[in-house]
């Protein structure tokens, strides 16, 4: 099969750490099969390519685009829209594209706070004039442009239509291979589906489970858990109960609680809400003050614990902004973003 007739594959990296790119390579020698099956037309991380070449392609001419990362900047939004138009199948690849993930936690702040922290207040920054990035800068030679930085990180699906979601931070190599095989074979679930399991990590976890009653939540540095019993029963906040299966319970298998990187189970709108109602249900006390203490001492960072991977795609989405910016000036600022 020559490059002309092979289906075209594109991979892109937006607001994410880059781990997803490595994960694609973690399928090992099977990458050669990918290369054999697809004509890789765009993959900035590993090969040279120009946006102009993509812009020049006809809409729908790319068979599959694996897009990782959330949408933080105008450039990322542009690329998301461009690849959406060019790709027949757009896959939100990994937790950031699907749910916002770690970059999405910045939705607890706003652009101004993030800029001040990073460019002015950070101890390692030397910026006496408090210069902040702007989308347009005028210099002697003319105007320079930087991508605009948005107030809110959005997921890929909040920006463009997405056909499939491949969860994980990063997706497991075998699951990537399963998905690619399914695409190659044309054996795909209905559009909009998550390609993955429909149950949770507990299903894959070898530990023994009992009725749960927790008197104290502990942090990982406080205990060496026993290797047999459910970690949650030992007081560790293991998110495996609410997290989609697919990783083979990697973390619990090595005595470390699940942090929820595979996202919510199928059909769940809000991962954190599920975790919170579940944990609230098993706290072994009816005394409000004691319950308060158990939560305050055991779970010092609720958002980071329950929304680590999904804040941008939760019911909460982001922290509340001042009313003026939200309601009255809403329409005006949207254009600037």
């Amino acid at each position: 099969m020559n490059a002309e007739t092979k289906p075209k594959l594109a991979l892109y990296w937006a607001a994410s750490c880059g781990g997803c790119e490595i994960a694609v390579l973690a399928i090992d020698e099977r990458i050669l099969e990918v290369a054999g099956a697809f004509d890789v037309v765009f993959w900035p991380c590993v090969m040279d390519g120009k946006v102009a070449d993509i812009e020049a392609m006809e809409d729908g001419s790319i068979a599959v685009c694996l897009f990782n990362g959330g949408i933080r900047t105008s450039e990322q939004e542009y690329m998301a829209r461009l690849l959406r138009a060019k790709a027949k199948v757009l896959v939100a690849f990994g937790a950031c594209a699907q749910d916002g993930s770690i970059p999405g936690l910045a939705n607890l702040l706003d652009r101004d706070t993030i800029f001040r922290q990073n460019y002015v207040e950070s101890p390692s920054v030397d910026n006496p004039e408090s210069t902040l990035p702007t989308a347009t800068t005028t210099v002697a030679e003319g105007e320079l442009h930087l991508p605009a930085f948005y107030d809110t990180l959005r997921t890929l699906a909040q920006t463009v239509d997405v056909d499939y979601f491949l969860p994980g931070c990063p997706p497991e190599a075998d699951r990537i291979w399963d998905a690619l095989s399914a695409i190659l074979a044309g054996d795909l679930p209905p559009a909009g589906s998550v390609i993955g399991a429909r149950t949770t990590v507990c299903e894959e976890c070898p530990r023994t489970r009992h009725e749960k009653k927790v008197k104290e939540f502990k942090r990982t540095w406080q205990v060496i858990p026993d290797a047999e019993t459910c970690l949650l029963e030992q007081g560790l906040v293991c998110c495996g109960i609410a997290t989609r299966a697919g990783c083979g319970a990697r973390c619990p298998s090595v005595n470390s609680p699940c942090i929820g990187c595979y996202g919510a189970n199928d059909g769940v709108q809000d991962f954190g809400a599920r975790m919170m109602t579940a944990l609230a249900s098993i706290i072994d006390s009816n005394d409000p003050r004691e319950v308060q203490r158990i939560i305050a001492t055991g779970i010092p960072d609720p958002v980071g614990t329950f929304y680590r991977f999904s804040l941008a795609n939760s019911f909460l989405r982001r922290s509340r902004r001042p009313v003026a910016a939200g309601a009255a000036a809403g329409a005006a600022t949207r254009g600037e973003d």
């Binding site: 429909r198 149950t199 949770t200 990590v201 507990c202 299903e203 489970r209 009992h210 009725e211 749960k212 009653k213 459910c230 949650l232 495996g240 109960i241 299966a245 189970n265 199928d266 579940a278 249900s281 098993i282």
Partner: peptide
């Protein structure tokens, strides 16, 4: 089919 047997609900 989808219950993973985490047993959160059992004592509730």
């Amino acid at each position: 089919e989808r219950c993973s047997g985490c047993r959160i609900c059992n004592a509730l």
